[in-house]
Design a protein around this nucleic acid. Structure first.
Lengths: 157, 157
DNA sequence: GTGACTGCAAATGGTTTGCACAAAA
DNA sequence: TTTTGTGCAAACCATTTGCAGTCAC
């Protein structure tokens, strides 16, 4: 099954409607799966295919997608919320590399924390349902070439 | 050397002054090392010992402490920035457990990621300077007793 | 006196909300 | 026709900034 009909089912299951606006927004997210778009960025992109769309609808739709565990709301410290599509099983199984030279944000599509989560359960009596792992640093290639920083880094973590 | 004179030296090294306001703020942070205070919380607490203090000064001081790597600015998704004292070596060596039942935020004062950082370097050519690891879930004790959720959880990660 | 620092109030900017209208069930 | 969703504008609220006054060297 393709992703959009999969998502359509999730909407239906909770008695939500997949309106044209919502579908347009979901499509933008699917088309930019690699990125971590902000609300404003989604808004700009959707405007191309749906010029009449209101900003509030983007906010409300992304919140809804969050509730349905289709996307994940994250904050990388640049002052705006960013949204990340979850996998097909709606799990959270990736980590981030954030380069402080070029500003790139790469995903590691793998779960390296299985063992550590067992350790948390064992040593702290804490049952993990979700996690977040970001690495901040620099790519070796960036360090060598000294490529320019793309955007201001408010350095929040 | 105690912490406050240590911090005092860091200020002096960068030609910053440790004013009474700044010292009062730092003391609040030291007194509440376990917590992750928001600006508003720091403001309220400092008001007890320094009633005349302005909110903007708290913002400016915390930003300064961030720049000196004395504290770390973090965002746990509740809409406000929170600040965490770094260790004496000003490294970032701890992880977080966030309970979605009781809202507690516990620190794991240990660095479990040494091996993974080597792996990132090896497999991605990425040199890690800092990281962030949060686990979200529930304490076994919370699950059993069903203790009440302390605060609204905007579920941002 | 010059430069760093503070307090206050105003401005900023991302996000939320109230409400009237539109579409769907 | 009752419910759900949308667009617009206003409200909200954490944070930042401009500025005049204060303090330290």
């Amino acid at each position: 099954m393709d992703q959009i009909s999969n998502i359509s089912q999730l909407f239906a299951a909770q008695k939500y409607k997949l309106t044209p606006q919502r579908e347009a927004i979901v499509n933008i997210l699917l088309d930019n799966e690699k990125d971590h778009l902000s609300v404003e960025e989604v808004y700009m992109l959707v405007k191309n295919s749906y010029p009449h769309l209101g900003l509030a609808t983007v906010y409300r739709t992304l919140e809804l997608l969050c509730e349905l565990h289709i996307v994940e709301k994250m904050n990388f410290g640049d002052g705006v919320a960013r949204y990340d599509l979850r996998g097909n099983d709606h799990s959270h199984m990736h980590h981030h590399l954030i380069c402080s030279v070029c500003g790139r944000l790469e995903e590691i599509k793998d779960d390296w924390l299985v063992e550590l989560e067992k350790r948390v359960e064992r040593e702290y009596g804490f049952n993990v349902t979700d996690h977040r792992l970001d690495f901040k640093g620099t790519y070796d290639t960036c360090k060598r070439t000294g490529c320019k920083k793309e955007k201001a880094n408010k350095a929040v973590s």
